[in-house]
Design a protein around this nucleic acid. Sequence first.
DNA 1: TACAAAAAGATACGGC
DNA 2: GCCGTATCTTTTTGTA
Lengths: 105, 105, 105, 105
Amino acid sequence: MSYQNGTEVVTEARNGKAASAQGKDTGGVGAERLRSFVERIERLEAEKKEIADDIKEVYAEAKGTGYDTKILRKVISLRKMEDHDRREQDELLDLYMQALGMIEE
Amino acid sequence: MSYQNGTEVVTEARNGKAASAQGKDTGGVGAERLRSFVERIERLEAEKKEIADDIKEVYAEAKGTGYDTKILRKVISLRKMEDHDRREQDELLDLYMQALGMIEE
Amino acid sequence: MSYQNGTEVVTEARNGKAASAQGKDTGGVGAERLRSFVERIERLEAEKKEIADDIKEVYAEAKGTGYDTKILRKVISLRKMEDHDRREQDELLDLYMQALGMIEE
Amino acid sequence: MSYQNGTEVVTEARNGKAASAQGKDTGGVGAERLRSFVERIERLEAEKKEIADDIKEVYAEAKGTGYDTKILRKVISLRKMEDHDRREQDELLDLYMQALGMIEE
DNA sequence: TACAAAAAGATACGGC
DNA sequence: GCCGTATCTTTTTGTA
């Protein structure tokens, strides 16, 4: 799809608030589809934000209980990194074993 | 360092200030509490990541349908800004109305 | 647009805010300064690119010698991550010791 | 896993294909070679990072002098693009001149 | 404000 | 040789 089309459709999507509210959708089919994408994404982003806020709340609660959030954050971060490292090591091991013909690719 | 150990050390370290500041480290109570915080945060971060992945999937699907994700992202972003602007305007309006005694603080 | 002109235009544009905001465009002083920044950055970026190319060459050479670059890259990556982890663990230890009053902040 | 061990493992694994493919693992020769590759790459990456840090410093200095780094980055980026365009034009010109027998291939 | 994490974008590599 | 994938870089965002 060309930029033209993409832009057109987008225009319709925005019109969803501006134009079609006035009773007229000049394009229609692609507009609905795009509107659906936009809404799904915005819904998911709202959920994501809620969870981010929840996380902040937990940190705040921990702080209120007397824990040093700086330490807590670093602990969480380290655990995440170690988990990631472990995964990478597993992948490396897989690569070794593939190279040695011990497992199939 | 294993996860267990990592957590334990933190626990003891924190107890050094949080629990033992009350004169005595009860030996494990604070540990459970901290472990709970860590688990709650990690659970929430996992959920957050899932949603982030979902968002990526939606963008990918939109792309597969022929939409230009760059433009799509711009649209989402603009709508977010407009939403933000609108909220600010609403807040401003509230301030005016409060100042005029039309609504309570 | 030539390079010279490109820079000039930008320079003037910036002076419009940086210099003339003080009431007067000093006519070239700010331009020289900006040109100097641009040149320093471009010089450094050229050096950076050279090194990046050197790295590619080493990978290519390793590949020519029979090594699997994918494995090699992962090894390098893992070592980097482990190095980073170690630094984070050290920082965490410092935080613990600070919390326990064993070292000063 | 320590750094040393990490490298060793890789070495042995690779020898499985690189060295022993020649009929025999000479026990260490390939290891040295690989270690050399790893060290060269890590050394170059360290240099690259230093330069990247230098670049950040220059941007910071420019910011301190009153320049808007966002715009500055844009300028650098534009100049890079223009440079790229110019090179392409030069190449095109070369092609023309080659076609006209004005220069040798 | 300065720092760090996440997201976006650019680039490079290997497969087909 | 091109395309899809994957890595790496850069930009943006959020947080202390």
